[in-house]
Simulated assay, not measured.
Amino acid sequence: MKRPFHALFALALAAPLASAALAPLPAAAQQPAAATAQAVADHFSSVRSMTGNFLQFDAAGNQSEGTFSIERPGKIRFDYSGQPLRVIADGSQVAINNARLNTWDLYPLSQTPMKLLLDRRIDLSAANIQDVQQTPELITIVMGDRSVFGSSRITMMFDPNTYDLRQWTIRDQQGKDTTVIIDNVQEGVSVDQAQFAIPYNQISQQSRGRIGGGR
C-alpha cells in the first residue's frame, strides 16, 4: 500500500499544496510589483540549470541538508545527507526513493508545487503572482496556481541585487511551512541527465511483486 504523501519527510519538496487560494494583489500595488516580478522572472528564466547545497527546515524545526541539481524545465534531484532519501523529477513525474527500504513513490509533477519552481518561465499572470515584496535583503514572490487538482502555493525569495534564487517555502495541505535554503550555487552548469532518470521498470516490477506477495 502506498504510504501517505504528507508522511514522507522528503515531501516538503514535492507535496501538493494547501487548497486555500490567495487573494490577488491590490490594484495600487500591481504596477511596481509587476515590474519587480518581471525583472526577477527574466533573470530566472535565463538560468537553465543549477547545482548546490541545501538546508531544509520543516514546520517542527527539524533540520536536514544535502545536495541538489536543477535543470529547467521540469527536472530536479535532491540527495539528503545521512538519510536514505532522494527526490527526483524527470519532467513528468516526481519520485521519492527510500534506499534503505528500497521503496519508490511516484506523483505527477503537475500536482506538486515544484512545477512552479521548474517551469520554463515564471507565469506573471495575475492569477499566479499573489504577492511581491522587496527589502534590502530579499525580493519575495508568492505564487499560486489553480488547476483541476486545486490551488498551489510557493514563496520564492531572490537576491535583490543579482535576482538569484536563495530559498523557497512550501505550505502543505495542513497549513505547515517547510523552508529550503540553497547555497554554493553554480548556475548554467552541465548536469548529467542520468541524475534525473527514474527507474520505471524497477518500480513496476516491485509493484507487481507487492501485489503478487499479497495474494
Rank of each mutant, 00 (worst) to 15 (best):
Met50Asn: 04
Phe9Thr: 14
Val47Leu: 15
Leu138Trp: 11
Gln63Cys: 02
Asn201Lys: 13
Asp90Ile: 07
Gln173Trp: 04
Leu85His: 05
Thr179Ala: 05
Arg120Glu: 09
Leu17Asn: 13
Tyr80Arg: 06
Ser204Lys: 14
Ile70Pro: 00
Ala60Tyr: 06
Val185Ala: 01
Arg171Cys: 03
Met114Gly: 12
Leu25Cys: 10
Asp105Pro: 00
Leu101Pro: 00
Arg77Asp: 02
Gln206Glu: 10
Val189Gln: 02
Gly61Glu: 03
Pro16Ala: 12
Ile88Tyr: 09
Gln38Glu: 13
Val142Gln: 15
Ala127Val: 02
Ile122Cys: 06
Val191Ala: 01
Ala23Tyr: 05
Val185Cys: 05
Tyr80Met: 06
Gln133Ala: 14
Ser69Met: 07
Arg121Ile: 09
Asn62Ser: 07
Tyr80His: 11
Gln31Leu: 13
Ile182Arg: 02
Met114Thr: 09
Thr112Val: 04
Val180Tyr: 05
Ile88Ser: 01
Gln93Ala: 09
Ala126Asp: 13
Gly188Lys: 07
Ala126Ser: 12
Asn184Ser: 12
Leu13Ile: 09
Leu124Pro: 01
Gln206Pro: 01
Thr140Arg: 14
Tyr163Ile: 13
Gly213Asn: 15
Arg77Ala: 08
Asp131Met: 09
Leu138Val: 15
Pro24His: 08
Gln186Cys: 03
Tyr80Glu: 03
Asp79Gln: 08
Gly214Met: 12
Ser207Lys: 12
Pro108Met: 14
Ser110Arg: 13
Ala10His: 07
Glu187Lys: 14
Leu17Tyr: 09
Leu11Thr: 13
Met143Ser: 11
Ser49Arg: 00
Val148Pro: 06
Leu13Tyr: 05
Gln174Trp: 10
Ile88Arg: 03
Gly91His: 08
Leu109Ala: 07
Ala59Glu: 02
Gln186Trp: 03
Arg121Leu: 05
Asn53Glu: 08
Ala41Asn: 06
Asn53Arg: 11
Val180Ser: 03
Ile211Pro: 01
Thr169His: 08
Ala29Tyr: 05
Tyr80Gln: 09
Ala59Arg: 07
Arg171Phe: 04
Met143Gln: 15
Leu8Phe: 12
Asp192His: 13
Pro113His: 04
Ile203His: 06
Ala14Pro: 06
Ser204Val: 04
Gln30Asn: 02
Arg121Val: 14
Phe68Gly: 00
Gly144Trp: 07
Asn184Leu: 05
Val87Ser: 04
Gly214Ser: 13
Trp168Glu: 04
Met114Ser: 09
Arg153Val: 07
Leu116Ile: 12
Ala33Ser: 15
Ala28Phe: 10
Arg153Ala: 12
Asp123Ser: 15
Val87His: 03
Gln133Tyr: 09
Leu138Cys: 01
Lys75Arg: 10
Val185Gly: 00
Thr135Gly: 12
Gln205Val: 05
Ser92His: 13
Asp172Cys: 05
Ile139Asn: 04
Pro26Leu: 15
Phe54Trp: 08
Ala29Asp: 15
Gly209Arg: 15
Asn128Ser: 11
Pro199Asn: 08
Arg208Gly: 02
Arg48Ala: 12
Ser92Glu: 15
Leu55His: 14
Phe68Glu: 00
Ala29His: 14
Leu138Thr: 10
Gln134Gly: 07
Gly144Ala: 10
Thr178Trp: 03
Arg120Gly: 06
Gln134Trp: 06
Thr36Tyr: 07
Arg215Gln: 11
Ala95Pro: 00
Ala126Arg: 13
Asn62His: 11
Gly188Ile: 10
Val148Arg: 15
Val132Leu: 08
Ile139Ser: 02
Ala37Pro: 04
Val94His: 07
Glu71Pro: 00
Ala12Pro: 00
Pro26Ala: 14
Ala7Asn: 07
